[in-house]
């Protein structure tokens, strides 16, 4: 986040930091909601051995894909409410009327969403990797790809959340809109981890993921801001 605030004018960075802080404070007020995506992730990871059997070899083989697919699904959980509360309370309208462009506020909300869903997934990754018997040499790749990939998931998800903000029950529609857009992230992330498991170099996948992360972070907030304006009309 720091690079963004450096590039922007002081008041933009103040808006950014203030918004992130506000969102985090709101999130802290309901720790149950805060823990939901992580709980879902842990539970779903635990379900897999029950479904496919406890064989360590088989789990190790499936682990990269499973860990990544579940990361996509866990990210979806917090998305529906990303702009919902602010939309209903009218805060979003204030943000839209703010002197700073709307995408700054949007970026802040996405940052807060990532801090409460994406980052915990990254930090939980070692335990999830242990549960699915992922070979230890792939752990750092798993964490790096999650660190680069989950911001993309948050920011693309924010576009979907913005487009459906005026709808009351949107979680299924949101999944339908957003998941196809997640395909490249899944392929690159899981592919990098699987490559390391197979003893192949994964620099290319990680580099592409980093490039996509930069691209998504620069372009998608504009899409989300445009979507919110449509919803606000």
């Amino acid at each position: 986040m720091s690079s963004v605030s450096l590039a922007a004018t002081p008041s933009a960075s103040m808006l950014l930091v203030g918004q992130v802080r506000r969102d985090l404070k709101i999130a802290m007020r309901s720790p149950g909601d805060l823990a939901n995506p992580l709980m879902f992730y842990a539970l779903a990871v635990a379900l897999f051995p029950l479904g496919v059997g406890p064989s360590p070899e088989r789990l190790a083989e499936l682990a990269p894909g499973v860990l990544w697919v579940l990361a996509l699904l866990a990210t979806l959980l917090g998305l529906e409410t990303l702009f919902r509360r602010d939309f209903e309370e009218g805060t979003l309208e204030q943000l839209a009327l703010h002197a700073q462009p709307l995408f700054v506020g949007v970026l802040a909300k996405i940052g807060a969403h990532w801090l409460v869903t994406g980052l915990p997934l990254v930090l939980f990754a070692p335990i999830a990797a242990l549960m699915l018997n992922l070979p230890m040499q792939a752990l750092d790749t798993l964490m790096i790809t999650l660190l680069l990939g989950t911001p993309i998931l948050s920011v693309l998800g924010a576009v979907g959340a913005a487009l459906t903000v005026s709808l009351r029950r949107s979680s299924l529609l949101l999944a339908l809109i957003v998941l196809p857009l997640y395909v490249p992230v899944l392929i690159l992330g899981a592919g990098a981890v699987a490559a390391v498991v197979d003893g192949v170099d994964s620099t290319a996948q990680v580099a592409w993921l980093a490039a996509l992360c930069a691209l998504a972070l620069t372009l998608a907030p504009f899409g989300a801001a445009a979507g919110l304006r449509v919803g606000l009309d």
Partner: peptide, 17 residues
Amino acid sequence: ILAVVGTVNIPIIKYSV
């Protein structure tokens, strides 16, 4: 908006697939 976002994504999806 969704159509534009999707169109931007199609080459990335194809390439990654």
